[in-house]
Simulated assay, not measured.
Amino acid sequence: MSTKSAKRRPAAEQDKMLLEALREAPGPVSAYDIIEMLRPEAVLAPQTVYRSLERLIDEGRAHRLESLNAYVSCSHPEHHEATAFAICQNCRQVIEFDDAGVTAQLKSWARKNGFDISQMTLELRGTCAACRTANVG
Rank of each mutant, 00 (worst) to 15 (best):
Q119I: 05
I95W: 05
I117W: 09
E123T: 05
V29Q: 09
D15I: 01
S75I: 00
A104P: 00
V49I: 08
V29C: 12
E54W: 13
S108A: 14
A82N: 07
V102C: 06
S5K: 15
A31M: 01
R92K: 15
L68W: 01
D116N: 12
D116W: 02
P28W: 04
Q93M: 14
Y32K: 13
R51W: 06
L18D: 04
R125Q: 15
L19W: 09
R92H: 14
S5E: 15
Q105M: 09
R55T: 09
L19M: 08
Q47Y: 13
W109S: 00
F85N: 08
M37S: 07
Q119R: 15
I35H: 02
L38G: 05
R51M: 12
T103R: 08
Y32C: 01
V102M: 12
S75E: 15
R8C: 10
P28Y: 04
Y71N: 03
H80N: 04
A134S: 11
L19Q: 12
K112W: 01
S52C: 12
N90W: 05
N69K: 11
E66H: 13
E54R: 15
I34A: 06
A42K: 08
E36R: 09
E66D: 11
T83C: 03
L56H: 04
L106K: 01
L106C: 00
V43K: 07
D116S: 11
C88N: 05
V49H: 03
D98L: 07
P28E: 08
I35S: 04
I117P: 14
M37T: 09
V29T: 06
Q47N: 15
E20W: 11
T127W: 04
P77R: 14
V43L: 12
N69V: 02
A25N: 10
Q119K: 13
L53Q: 07
M37P: 00
D116A: 12
I34M: 14
Q47G: 14
R39D: 04
N113A: 01
G60F: 05
S52N: 09
C88L: 01
H80T: 08
L18M: 11
K112F: 00
A70C: 06
Q47F: 13
I57P: 07
T127Q: 10
R61G: 02
L53Y: 10
L122C: 10
V136T: 13
A31Y: 00
A21P: 07
A100Y: 11
Q105P: 00
Q47D: 13
A45D: 15
V94Q: 06
C74A: 11
I57F: 10
K16C: 09
V29R: 02
R55A: 12
V72M: 05
C91R: 03
A82W: 04
K7P: 03
A62W: 06
G126H: 10
R39E: 06
R111I: 02
L122V: 14
K4G: 06
A82Q: 07
I35A: 07
R23T: 03
N90C: 09
S30A: 11
A70S: 13
V72C: 03
G126A: 10
V29S: 05
V94K: 04
R111S: 02
P77T: 10
A12Y: 04
V136K: 15
H79Y: 04
E96D: 03
C88Q: 02
D99Q: 10
S73W: 03
G27K: 12
S108Y: 00
Q89N: 15
F97Y: 11
A31C: 01
I117N: 04
R8P: 13
R111N: 01
M37A: 11
